[in-house]
Design a protein around this nucleic acid. Sequence first.
DNA 1: TTTGTATTTAAGCAAATACTTAAATACAAA
DNA 2: TTTGTATTTAAGTATTTGCTTAAATACAAA
Lengths: 122, 122
Amino acid sequence: MSGGNVCIRGEANPVQINDCRQKVAKNESAFAQLSAVLSLAGNEVRLKILYLLEAEKELCPCDLSDILGMSIPAISQHLRKLKDGNIVSSRKEGQTIFYSIRPAHLKLLRSFFKIINQLEAI
Amino acid sequence: MSGGNVCIRGEANPVQINDCRQKVAKNESAFAQLSAVLSLAGNEVRLKILYLLEAEKELCPCDLSDILGMSIPAISQHLRKLKDGNIVSSRKEGQTIFYSIRPAHLKLLRSFFKIINQLEAI
DNA sequence: TTTGTATTTAAGCAAATACTTAAATACAAA
DNA sequence: TTTGTATTTAAGTATTTGCTTAAATACAAA
């Protein structure tokens, strides 16, 4: 399916359409990368986890389970997705595993947390 | 399920846990609102649609279908989700319906587009 | 009115999500 | 070694998602 639904209407601008196609093509990889991060942060539980990790520097699955009132496996599976997406990293101390946000993602995530704190104020 | 998984380990700090619980409770509505927007933008097709709407001010489903090489109903259903989420609005001109980004969301979305344009540069 | 265009809606379906419970790891402590 | 703690993994399941095709709207033009 491609180019089969072109509108007949006069206003449709072939130059504009082509320009748009190129914009999309040029940023294909950027769209994939960013949408992956946004969809991870777009889950309410994971957004809370990230917010808490930023506030507390690091937390373990057990603490998160306790704070959010969710089962340990549920939390662990969310953390796995965040780790697979390279948004968080982990370190081991004894039998406890501490998760924290990867510095590379802090800037984007902080813009989200700022919005959360602003919404709270309303 | 609540408070049933408290870790036994010594480092677990009851004060910190309680502090976190309050932070989450205080922002409950903000988490719901923001995660809704992020999950809408977290779909690759919708992220492209939003990017194009910002660049072109407004576009119709037919144009978007043509640009993105997707069926009209598929595009229409994405636009409906964005409209239900109050991220875009529409105006009618003849038989064409033009969609555009609601000003209230432009600031957040522009921070995404900025990242896309930066990723492109790499 | 009849015909055609732009769009939405509905129904169906395969794949992805987000949980559950139970079992498996890894390792510290007794 | 045995026991217990923190965590992950696996399997099962209900729900959601994102497309498809076909039908329904809405309305402009002939």
